[in-house]
Design a protein around this nucleic acid. Sequence first.
RNA 1: GCUGUGGUAGUGUAGGGGUUAGCACGGUAGGUUGUGGUCCUGCCGGCCCGGGUUCAAUUCCCGGCCACGGCCCCA
Length: 444
Amino acid sequence: MFERPRGTRDFGVDEMARRLHFENLLEERARRHGFKRVQTPIFESLDLFTAKSGAGVVDQLYSFQDKGERDLTLRPELTAPVMRMIAAERGQMPKPAKLSYFGQCFRYEEFKSARYREFFQYGCELVGATGPVAEAEVVALAIDMLASSGLVEWELRIGHVGITRDILTTLGIDSAAGAGQSEPAIATALRLLDKGDWDGLGELFTKHGIATSAIESLQALAGLAGGVETLPAAREILTGLGVGHDSLEELQQFCSALDLLAPSPPKLSVNLCVARGLDYYTGMVFEAYVDELGGEGQVLGGGTYRLLHLFDLGDLDPCCGFGLGFDRVLIALEKQAERLGRDEVVAGENTGRPALAVIPLNIEPENYLGLVAELRQAGLVVELELRKRGVGKSLAWAENMGASHAIIIGARDLESGQVAIKNLKSGEQSEVANNCEAILAEIL
RNA sequence: GCUGUGGUAGUGUAGGGGUUAGCACGGUAGGUUGUGGUCCUGCCGGCCCGGGUUCAAUUCCCGGCCACGGCCCCA
């Protein structure tokens, strides 16, 4: 037997039906918000990702050389490819460009539940417009997607990396990497701050000759729990530190715009110390979490970032976008559906059109194939019994295939010009004329 | 990278050093050549892989692989 490669999955018909429905749902939401779908290759040049994330990422990539000895890799994410695509057009598309994308990504890492080596991401990027309203457009779509999928009890966390960055810079933390250091001190500080490692932060401050008294203010900032109502308190803390309010003001305006543009998420928390781990984020950042997934609870993340300068399109920075963990949202929905006794996992997945099963009984194909074609042309899902079996077994098969109605055509019906049509749910059966229109009228 | 638990038909499980390895669901055929979803019968299909201990291993031991968790990390 051959085994699937580790960290990959097969999707059978039931699971795939759900995934397709979810993808279509996300697509429809993106479309309503004015985002248009693009697609990039499954593999890219290796240097596209090392340029974005540093040489260290190679360890986590499915990278390889092709027969022309080109260094390539399966894509680990979709933002960089989309940026590359924009650069390939030299930014010559109508602005602002609101792009969406969906596809699988690959990371070579230890896989766990909700963390696969091949995983699917749905994402959006808004390029060529900046400011609170543009950011609100992006986050409003994220909220709409999660809400319309049927996900409940999720938490939206909003922050702004400019705030902590301004504080640390004002305090005198270097933003350039010192000699022999892999990253600037400010990046280390941001990470410690994000983790709430106050001891580590104190050490760092001492090392740079900074009074550790500022830690108390940072702790106070990190300790602010709640939504937008915490922003005035944050403002006072910044004033106390002698730090400007520009970033906070931006965040305030963004929150106001978002409040008008999108329904309120189940839980909203403003966290001014989030770092998003990545140093290309420069402004507003946001993440969505669910409790169902344990340590892998982040289902969506994004923010305002500068990447296009890597492609000599710095005048289009910053951009704003997010990635939605397709698999993680589905897993969360499944767990919630089970816990809450919900029939549907993804909202709307069970509302299908009627499906017909056509059961011919010992008659020649030319007596029923035309009808099958016509019914399909009319938009119905039509199953055709391909085996010669008894009516009883065929009806059981029809029910099993998910048909709502069955049509039985035998020699008897051909003579009378009628067919038997049976509602498989109610068991009621009637005779209608042997043509597409009569059948449609009966079941719709 | 560290670490915990587990692995018996497609799925869910019982069992256990010598068994025709049991059951349920499933699939398939028939009872039933024009009325199913109930019922009856037959069939299909399994001890993750390798090594060790033993007269004998699916069962005990070791390793691997796979699965599920907890940390670390996460573009």
